[in-house]
Design a binder for these strands. Structure first.
Lengths: 262, 262
DNA sequence: CATAAACAAGCAGTAATCTGCATATATGGG
DNA sequence: CCCATATATGCAGATTACTGCTTGTTTATG
């Protein structure tokens, strides 16, 4: 039976890591699916899942496994995380927007709060690729809302793809409000997906001023996909709890830094 | 692609999480509605609800379930009195959507309810110019959401303008779900704004089938801006209360008419 | 009070799971 | 080189979970 000429030896541990990866990537895994994909029997998969649950890496359910944290999309979880500090940051950033400007607002929870913090009578044009931003500004009588269309990326709730790329390429804004994933002194601006990085790069390139809004825990960290160097930022708004030491690299680059009134 | 021909499977536990999510989102859930939406029998739903109540996640009531704590749902569109009849119309229209199709969904509250009534494991591509539709479908694992960008028209909550025009011109859909403003035997399809009429005309022209969804009070009425003749419609879904007399003009045109199970 | 819908309990078929056991595949000592 | 041991895997039978259907009962509503 097991007479495959070259047995591509897959280590058990390697296979288990693969299961965890598939789960995080796909949101769920089923036993038959894994059995076929990894070319082992369903029993082996079940034993793997039992071990992974013991290790706290998956939640075992009848028929397969789900992520440990409830399967609600990542975005909805983040929505409720540190809303207060994000709102304080957003309020500080909103003051930097001048009447009459064309403003790009990134996706991401902090950037969304900036949209919500804008004064209700503001006269402006707001460009965004996030449906939440569009809905948040629907009641603003003097704001013209321009949406970047495309394919919905469900983890970041942003419209992406070539259509978004084309639409963004033909725009020129006064200000861009960037919801930053990670900022690092030497790595620069970075984020967790390639598509996101590409779009952020376009937004930065097509705006005169770039305001980065971020919680303090994102400072001095890095993510896989690099957007560009730090000196493309013109303003940085973060929490009051951020130490001066953390902010000094940005100030030496000529970036205006602001702390939220926490 | 490693796509097997078997239909995408939904884990029981996954389905229960969906129920909780729908409950928090809608403020209430009914057994028939969940049965339709999740594509399982009413008995299974009842068993799910019993288990969820045991776990303290829902409060079981006759006919469905309510949140554990009597919260006021943040449901902005709820002030609309005929939500229930719109939802019934939407449920009937959703049955006309076949797996694998490319579906255009118009803006408007009834069309939005169609999106919300689609079975959760539907495999499809949905094109829309409404941010609410995009958000409603964000949790559908096998639906690709394509957004038509443009300038936000705040009265209809649709993205319009030349950008939307261009994006719609380059699309070809299997079916279009049209939220109709007015239908009249001699005037045809009409609506209240020029921009809306233009976009609806484009959507109709680029879809193989056109399903109009509308409450009965819109039948035999007219609005200022004409979209096109009635015979461009292929299906019409309306309330159970609509008289046969009202529907006969459409049937003689070869339009398939459906009444919601009210 | 009558009717239709919703419910609960039980039954049967299918799929998933669990348990014990036999067979490989190293790994290291004699 | 041979063998004992631990680990990993697959298989077979018993058990459990899930689902839809049927029957009789309860609940809501006009």
């Amino acid at each position: 039976m097991t007479s495959s000429p070259t047995s591509p030896t897959t280590l058990p541990e390697e296979r288990r890591q693969h299961i965890v990866q598939l789960l995080n990537q796909h949101g769920k895994v089923t036993v038959p699916e894994l059995s076929e994909h990894l070319d082992v029997s369903a029993d082996t998969i079940r034993r793997d899942l039992a071990g992974l649950e013991q290790a706290g890496l998956v939640t075992r359910v009848h028929g397969g496994a789900l992520p440990v944290k409830p399967t609600t999309p990542p975005y909805k979880l983040r929505r409720d995380a540190n809303v207060d500090s994000k709102r304080a940051i957003a309020a500080a950033a909103a003051k930097l927007i001048q009447p009459g400007q064309v403003v790009m607002i990134d996706s991401g929870t902090t950037a969304l709060e900036v949209a919500r913090s804008l004064p209700i009578n503001l006269l402006a044009t707001v460009v965004s690729a996030s449906p939440y931003v569009a809905i948040a500004l629907a009641d603003y009588p003097h704001v013209e809302v321009v949406m970047i269309g495309g394919t919905l990326d469900k983890t970041s709730m942003t419209f992406t793809g070539s259509a978004a790329h084309v639409a963004l390429s033909n725009l020129r804004a006064d200000v861009c409000v960037l919801g930053v994933c990670s900022l690092h002194e030497t790595v620069g601006i970075s984020t967790i997906s390639l598509e996101e990085a590409t779009l952020k790069r376009l937004m930065i390139g097509n705006a005169r001023e770039v305001i980065a809004v971020t919680t303090a825990d994102k400072l001095h960290t890095a993510a896989p996909f690099v957007v560009g160097p730090l000196n493309q930022l013109t303003h940085l708004v973060t929490e009051a709890s951020a130490s001066d030491e953390l902010l000094s690299p940005y100030q030496t680059l000529g970036i205006q830094t602001f702390k939220a009134a926490n």
